[in-house]
Design a protein around this nucleic acid. Structure first.
Lengths: 342, 342
DNA sequence: CTGAAAGCGCTTACAG
DNA sequence: CTGAAAGCGCTTACAG
């Protein structure tokens, strides 16, 4: 006999298909004695349900929304593209992905966006946003109304999300730190640290990890206070230029968030490629070119395709009440040099 | 209207379901005029077939075999585990994975194994083996009999495989080279290079890439001729010990293949962890521990889970006559430090 | 609380 | 060369 089906269960338990189905999907209206018989049959035959057939039968269509910050950063662009690409591939898998962009720190916009999604009765939400009470409360609401929720890229540990899809940013900062220390190669001096804003949770964590490694392993290096670029090219360039001017012993630059374009511009303009070790985050067409041109030495990154696929896998599992395979959903901290560019 | 189905196509083309199906699956017995009408309908309605429904209907069961070299290396073990794990997950996806182990360089065993698989009419084969005329010819035979074939980990560029699933080993060697040069930090000296055998294609390529980088970027470093460990712990330790004894300016060890256990043993026994830069390949429980203990500085790796899933995805696509998404099937060269261990 | 029947989107003998 | 009908494994109204 092949794999057992609902028919086999029904026969074994001496009930009808409908009853088997009710038990399988935990729908009410089954006497506990009957349910017990069905469960026994399931255990005895080792039944596992064919999800595809189930979805086919119920005409199930999963609707997942991705809420992202508005912005022209290359990473966000790549993420949006990945969502679109995954969406195209998933249409046949009965999942429909939608992307909504909300301006950074626009609470009203965020509330409106999430309320709309809730009204639309989406099945799952993947959200990348700064941690605020508004977001926290809204997520609790969404969860209550039965929507699966995962946080993306930047976690909200205090919100009732089902799962976080992204890297451990403290570890990412540590990784950057070790590579910085090693690549600097025994010299002593200062490290310029650039972030877009010191308020974002992931930035804070990366800085934390970076500093810890500097302290523990490379006391000869001195990581300067974070410079804020605020996602603006000119501003980023300006703050770095100023910092370079006031320190004559800078040996490296760590760009912990968006702002890589500003950094590479400075490096190129001042011909510093061979003098400084430069480490950035997120592999994009731009940072990839930076690696090729030698303007960047290392890029620490997380694969946007994996992020999106993991998010949809997790959301789908939550919708189906299935367990996720933790090991498969762990997003890797990837290290990219010119030599191992994909 | 939702997505068009075979019913819509049948109606639009004015034919029966059976005819639509014949056209869809390119089965014979349809007048070209009729086929043309069906194709027009497909184009007009933008039909794309529901693979899951199709598989359900035909009770399709994909049978894929993985042929691997026999051996107790941690990497092979991890790979076997990954196959088993993927197999369990895929049972519901109507794919069945089987692993066959053939002793290295046992041509007769290889022929027998492949002939058996061919007789069993498997749907697809993923093979990891050294490049030999025997293998090349057998793969041609298998392909001819309609079996999809991918090479795994170590390519056979001259065989008629459908696809290679694995990393670019020249690039992997280059990556190791750059990290070695950078981590050594300006010192000059010799690098010990360990391989299991100089005959395997992937070893040759890694060595090639490593040497190229040494030559181009780190002229102060001198990579010694490859030591062969032949997958034997004692032997590996012996050759490294001997090499260390005869060179007093060794600054690093590059283990390009199996043999990491021997290398870490030597490092630990002689207390060389802080003196030498040690780079190995393939993340396993052992090399992971080596990283944690500081006995290894870097591990270059390819994710075995990705390898197996990519192989099955590609085989399935080939069986269905579908195109693969190249970008999704590219296996990354991963760099692992203690800090970004998964 | 339980079951018989129809249907999801596709394929497969079988008949003509 | 073409079509009507049954079936893959599951779910869903509808009846009882």
């Amino acid at each position: 006999m092949g794999k057992p089906t609902v028919h086999d269960i029904a026969e074994e338990a001496g009930v009808s298909l409908a009853t088997v189905d009710r038990v399988l999907n935990e729908r009410p209206g089954v006497r506990s004695m009957t349910a017990r018989r069905v469960h026994n049959a399931i255990d005895k035959l080792g039944y596992v349900r064919d999800v595809h057939a189930a979805n086919l039968a119920r005409g199930r269509q999963y609707r997942f929304a991705f809420v992202l910050p508005e912005g022209e950063s290359q990473f966000l662009k790549a993420l949006r593209d990945a969502i679109e690409e995954a969406g195209a591939g998933l249409r046949l898998d009965r999942a429909e992905l939608e992307t909504i962009e909300v301006p950074l720190n626009d609470s009203v916009g965020m509330i409106r966006a999430l309320e709309t999604l809730q009204a639309q009765q989406i099945d799952g939400l993947a959200i990348m946003a700064n941690e605020t009470p508004v977001v926290r409360d809204m997520l609790a609401h969404m969860k209550e109304s039965g929507i699966a929720v995962v946080t993306l890229v930047s976690d909200q540990p205090n919100a009732e999300r089902d799962h976080f899809v992204g890297i451990d940013n403290v570890a990412a900062g540590r990784t950057a730190g070790v590579l910085m220390g090693r690549f600097v190669g025994g010299r002593s001096g200062k490290i310029i640290v650039v972030v877009n804003t010191t308020h974002a949770r992931d930035m804070v964590q990366r800085r934390l990890g970076f500093d810890a490694v500097m302290r523990e392993q490379f006391p000869a290096l001195d990581a300067l206070p974070s410079l804020e670029g605020h996602d603006q090219l000119e501003r980023t360039i300006q703050v770095i230029d100023r910092s370079l001017a006031s320190h004559d012993d800078v040996v490296g630059i760590y760009c912990a968030g968006a702002g890589t374009r500003g950094v590479t511009k400075v490096i190129a303009d001042h011909g510093l490629a061979d003098k400084l070790v430069v480490i950035g985050h997120e592999l994009t067409t731009h940072s990839e070119q930076g690696l090729r041109d030698g303007l960047l030495d290392v890029v620490i990154t997380q694969n946007v395709g994996h992020l999106v696929r993991s998010a949809t896998r997790v959301l789908r599992a939550k919708c189906d009440g299935r367990e996720i395979i933790e090991s498969q959903e762990r997003i890797r901290i990837e290290i990219v040099l010119r030599e191992n560019l994909p």
